[in-house]
Write a protein that binds this DNA or RNA. Structure first.
Length: 396
RNA sequence: GGGUAGGUACCGAAGCGGUCAAACGGGGCAGACUGUAAAUCUGCUGGCUAUGCCUUCAGAGGUUCGAAUCCUCUCCUGCCCA
């Protein structure tokens, strides 16, 4: 068994690549040298059903552990999700219903296994132990940490400094999450740098229980498409890992050059080739990421299609969703119908559509349609541009 | 429990009887310029069957020709004291 492991020092080198914070490498090396599979914990909150590239950074690291022969322990925080992780938050999180959490957990794991090796992953729900606790147990748990420790956290400190509320259940979060480490007897815990505090609490609790404390491994937080805030669904700056190839590629093409370099590093583990034209580099990034979650062919065609649409403006044979003109033939009606039919999730309001039209965003074969009441001759095969990202082909 | 400051659109924040769908900033969207980059300039940013109509300024009532603005009660939050 142990013979199948790479030498500990080699493993260490691989594992610490791209890691922002490791406490401590020395201890990790010692654990690796034992030659037995390590239990690597990753706690996830099923608060949002869609996994995106931001989550992928840490999942990729976990997979790396798996590849080296270690045991991944994925904790679904069905219980903790009801508290809501206050990390990096300036406000209290809304609590989720039990049903929503379970449904999210389902889609979450399904997506996580696009990255992780399912056969080498142990999945546990932390409700398993927390739901059994009595109030007395909870008090006991709370007795292990001090108020001062909890208040040391950035998030709380900031909120207090800004006269914003901090609710008591929120300061329970690190305690609860830390206890997970004791329950699963983790050797290593992964998380974003914003999880440092939480993970350290787990380490303390293990020590308290007489266990060998877990290694803390924090990965850099991936910025979202805006390049400023962290990638998150609620900020609408994310690329979902199960998004369509074209969608993925398009989103990645809209990022800034600066951010592109970060993505190369954090998502691909590569240094950006500065000799490359930024545009080409970005296309390469897009292709590689699409290839990772779909296929090489999908990546190639996403790129070709994108280039046809946006670079060459040769819309002729680009692959576009087809829209069949309905009852309404006026510009306002057609644009509204097209959004509702093909992009219902992002359909703008009537007023917003009016704006798109009057501001020249809506174009038929490159010609701006600025009159909402106009009734152009809609001909099959023509390309109607709705907004910056969306175009449709008029169906016959 | 006492005192005190507050609750305004996506966020921050003005407004304190009419000219308020509500200044300003951020964010977002759109156009020009580009590489669907950045920077810059410009416009827009409650909804609708749209030269008008409807619903908003924590909630419920009230005063008034007229309220985000005044009064009453209720709910919520910060800070100080206990």
């Amino acid at each position: 068994m142990s013979s199948s492991f790479l030498p500990a020092s080699e493993q260490l080198q691989l594992l610490t690549r791209g890691v922002a914070n490791c406490i401590s490498e020395k201890e990790l090396l010692a654990k690796l040298e034992k030659g037995t599979p390590l239990r690597v914990k990753l706690g996830v909150d099923p608060t949002s059903p869609d996994l995106h590239l931001g989550h992928s950074v840490v999942l990729e690291k976990l997979r790396q552990f798996q590849e080296l022969g270690h045991q991944a322990v994925l904790i679904i925080g069905d219980f903790t999700a009801q508290i809501g992780d206050p990390s990096g938050r300036s406000k209290t999180r809304p609590a989720l219903s039990r049903e929503a959490i379970l449904a999210n957990a389902e889609t979450y794991t399904e997506q996580a296994f696009r990255i992780l090796d399912k056969d080498k992953t142990e999945i546990v729900f932390n409700g398993e132990w927390f739901n059994k606790m009595t109030f007395a147990d909870v008090i006991q748990l709370n007795a292990r940490v001090t108020m001062q420790q909890m208040l040391q956290r950035e998030d709380f400190k900031n909120r207090i400094a800004n006269d914003q509320e901090v609710r008591l259940h929120e300061i329970q979060y690190p305690i609860v999450q830390g206890w997970d480490s004791v329950e699963v007897r983790s050797d290593v815990e992964l998380g974003g740098t914003d999880q440092l505090f939480n993970i350290l609490v787990g380490r303390d609790m293990q020590k308290d229980e007489g266990m060998e404390p877990q290694i803390v491994m924090c990965l850099t937080i991936l910025e979202g498409l805006d390049g400023v805030q962290k990638m998150s669904k609620s900020l609408h700056n994310y690329v979902g890992i199960s998004e369509e190839p074209g969608e993925m590629f398009g989103k990645l093409m809209s990022i800034s050059d600066e951010l592109m370099a970060r993505y190369f590093l954090l998502l691909l583990g590569e240094e950006l080739d500065s000799a490359m034209h930024p545009m080409d580099a970005k296309k390469l990034l897009g292709e590689k990421i699409v290839a990772r979650y779909h296929s090489d062919e999908a990546a190639k065609s996403a790129r070709d299609n994108w280039e046809a649409l946006f670079s060459n403006k040769d819309v002729g044979d680009a692959d576009l969703p087809e829209f069949t003109i309905g009852e309404r033939k006026d510009v306002l009606g057609v644009v509204g119908d097209a959004f509702r039919a093909l992009f219902p999730d992002e359909a703008p309001s009537g007023s917003q559509i009016r704006q798109l039209i009057s501001q020249g965003s809506v174009q038929l074969e490159g010609e701006k349609l600025t009159d909402i009441k106009a009734r152009p001759e809609w001909t099959a095969g023509q390309v109607l541009k709705l907004n910056k990202k969306r175009r449709v082909r008029i169906a016959g």
